[in-house]
Nucleic acid binder design. Structure first.
Length: 652
RNA sequence: GCACCCAUGGCUCAACUGGAUAGAGCAUCGGACUACGGAUCCGAAGGUUGGAGGUUCGAAUCCUCCUGGGUGCACCA
């Protein structure tokens, strides 16, 4: 909202400078550090002083003298070295928030692909995966609010070692048949979780058993035989569970991209031809990488100093590495490959998936509900939500694009890196991953590992959060029918979890702790929801008392200016700045800015709630100002909750 | 060895990307009118921002070195 005002002010200022000095000047509009310096500040006179070789203060006075100002400006003061400080008309700002959209969709909306979640389809999702999915989901919501067209992809590595290992577990350790695997009861991903950890130990006992892995991997790559068929079944069942888990938190996808489809469609072969043609890869004829196609990285500054600056792209057995497949995939995302996937509807939830074959040759098959399939890929910007440990690989992929001559695409291929989630010492101990003996306090946090079966499963955590929510609702003596209780508990749990995952800066490792995650007080999702519920309660009570619950923007504008006290204005102005905060989050990919801003609004509102009661207030105008503030708050908070994906129950 | 990330009150984190008095939440202690619902609010206590230099009118923020912790540097993803 405020962005509009800022741009308008800049225009007025620039026009005035043109009229006075015949100079094309680009005005800056900032928010001053202290409120007594106004609500907005134009430091332009300071810059002009240099060009005009005159005192900045005088220039400021001159510009300010006959500035044609909109009615939402109350006063302009020339202060300090020559700053033009703008004091806004508080009622006008409040009215504007109530009458206009909080964000404006810029005309420059881009098509952006956001890839997130990307869990190996061989075990249950754990809380580290939740961080990824929540960040990706919130990022997508933010980008959409900023006017971009976002396509959400979830990459499924259905031909990799991790899946192969579970296949080995089912076939070679358990000796189960395809049908027996298909008949296993839910939760299938939990079963795989334990089995996967077992496979690691099984290999360790006898290294020759790794031959099973190799054979399975070959079968998956070439999509042949029983092993490939079993792998498909496992991947499908596990992915189904992952989607269910994420759906509990309101996280969805447009397209599931299968690695198998990249192989099946020979995407890599196409990319490889281009890499060879460009001389970006070479066949190693000696040394430890003999027989491999490698991409030399020594010339790139980013990789200088590496012991072995060459990256293997094609193994000596002729198979492609992950990086190779990912380069091809990135090219497809930008529409640079000259080929497309086949697509089919993934039966649940209106999600599409890529397939190797075209199934009947229809290039644009209809979805089950008759809707046309959207055009996937060919984005202008690509954002991959992948944890920071993969930074090196992501860099290699990017360099790959550069070497292919797609420099501008490489620039617009962004690795959204976030740090992992580890287990706090307390959590590790509670779960039995640390014995009481190896305390020593400096045991530190424990890294999660699917391979070792160390971690907190996402569904377990969600279940715990829901139980905790139920308890909390019950202590408040709320009598609710069972279905409403369940729905409310799920909402609160979702809010708690999503906020927990978004409030931390992405560059920081989260040491997961049960006590902290299950705390619904203070800086928590439920705290945010509660503030909105309170606003709703006010209106409900006003209605009961037969008092006005609505206030129109026109009425807000007409309220006496002196009623807008500083503390009320602080909240209104914070809401007005929401667009700027969200834009910053979209530009810097720092999602926590949105969460922090929401928290800031809630804290301000809760403080006012106690200080400025509405119901008992006798003066109609005072009540109206407070009501308007509550409406403004609710508008802002609701928008932020949407961005963060927090449900907003009426009561709790 | 090289590269990246982190270090802020007992604990978990902020600080609008270089701005003035370093802010919150947990935990601790003390309070809140017969309540617009205590998932709240007000207050107290707690900090020479890991250390040493440097740049700057101004540094938690930028630079250099050091210390401690994490991660990465596969023909695994």
């Amino acid at each position: 909202m405020l962005g509009e005002f800022r741009r308008e002010l800049a225009r007025i200022f620039e026009q005035r400078v043109r009229d006075l000095y015949a100079i094309d000047h680009t005005a800056i509009v900032e928010v001053p550090p202290r409120r007594d310096l106004g609500d907005l500040a134009l430091p332009g006179a300071l810059q002009l002083a240099r060009d005009l070789k005159r005192n900045p203060r005088q220039i400021g006075e001159e510009i300010a003298a006959e500035l044609e100002l909109p009615d939402w400006v109350r006063e302009v003061k020339v202060q300090g070295a020559g700053f033009l400080n703008i004091y806004l008309d508080r009622g006008s700002v409040a009215a504007a928030i109530l009458s206009r959209p909080l964000f404006e969709a810029p005309e420059s909306g881009q098509k952006i692909i956001v890839e997130h979640t990307n869990i190996n389809p061989n075990k249950a999702a754990h809380i580290g995966h939740l961080r990824n999915a929540v960040l990706g989901d919130v990022l997508s919501r933010v980008l959409r609010a900023l006017g971009h067209r976002v396509e959400i992809q979830n990459y499924i590595d259905d031909t990799g070692v991790q899946l192969a290992d579970v296949v080995v577990g089912f076939l070679d350790i358990r000796g189960l048949s395809r049908d027996q695997i298909a008949a296993l009861p839910e939760p299938f991903d939990y079963y795989c979780w334990d089995l996967y950890a077992e496979v690691g130990a099984w290999y360790a006992e006898d290294e020759s058993r790794l031959e099973h892995r190799r054979a399975t991997l070959q079968a998956l790559e070439h999509d042949t035989g029983e092993r490939a068929e079993v792998a498909r079944l496992i991947a499908r069942r596990v992915v189904k569970r992952h989607l269910e888990t994420m759906a509990r938190l309101g996280i969805g996808y447009d397209l599931l991209t299968h690695e198998g489809a990249i192989l099946g469609r020979n995407f890599f072969a196409k990319a490889f031809e281009q890499l060879k043609a460009r001389g970006a890869v070479k066949l190693e004829e000696s040394g430890k990488n003999v027989g491999c196609w490698v991409m030399p990285l020594a010339e790139s500054e980013e990789f200088a100093g590496l012991e072995d600056p060459d990256k293997v792209i094609v193994r000596s057995d002729g198979t492609a590495t992950y990086v190779a497949k990912d380069i091809a995939y990135q090219m497809w995302k930008f529409g640079l490959l000259g080929d497309d996937f086949g697509y089919r509807y993934w039966d649940e939830a209106g999600i599409w998936q890529t397939v190797a074959d075209d199934e009947g040759g229809d290039e644009r098959p209809l979805a089950a509900n008759g809707e046309k399939r959207p055009e996937f890929g060919a984005a202008e910007r690509v954002i991959n939500v992948i944890d920071a440990r993969q930074s090196y690989l992501q860099k290699v992929v990017r360099v790959g694009l550069e070497r292919l001559g797609f420099e501008s695409q490489a620039e617009r291929s962004i690795h959204f890196a976030y740090e992992m989630v580890s287990l706090s010492t307390a959590a590790a101990r509670q779960l039995g991953f640390l014995s009481d003996e190896d305390d020593d306090e400096d045991a530190g946090s424990l890294e999660m590992s699917g391979r070792k079966g160390i971690g907190v499963k996402a569904d377990d955590l969600i279940d715990q959060l829901i139980d905790k929510s139920r308890e909390e609702i019950r202590t408040r003596n709320r009598e609710l029918p069972d279905d409403e209780l369940d729905a409310l508990a799920a909402d609160i749990a979702t809010a708690a979890l999503r906020f927990f995952m978004t409030k931390a800066t992405t560059t920081r490792v989260i040491a997961f702790d049960f006590e902290e995650a299950l705390n619904f007080e203070g800086e928590s999702g439920p705290y945010l929801l509660y503030s909105l519920v309170r606003a709703g309660n006010i209106w409900r009570r006003l209605e009961q008392e037969g008092l006005a619950t609505e206030i129109t923007p026109e009425q807000v504008t007409e309220l006496p200016a002196e009623l807008w006290q500083d503390d009320l204005w602080d909240l209104v102005y914070a809401v007005a700045q929401t667009d700027g905060r969200v834009e910053a989050a979209g530009e810097t990919l720092e999602i926590s800015l949105v969460a922090r801003h929401a928290l800031d609004l809630a804290q301000k509102f809760n403080a006012l709630y106690h200080k400025h009661p509405i119901l008992q207030e006798k003066d109609d105008n005072v009540r109206a100002v407070r009501l308007a503030t509550t409406r403004v708050f609710s508008t802002g908070m609701r928008a932020l909750c949407d961005l963060l994906g927090l449900p907003t129950p009426e009561r709790m």
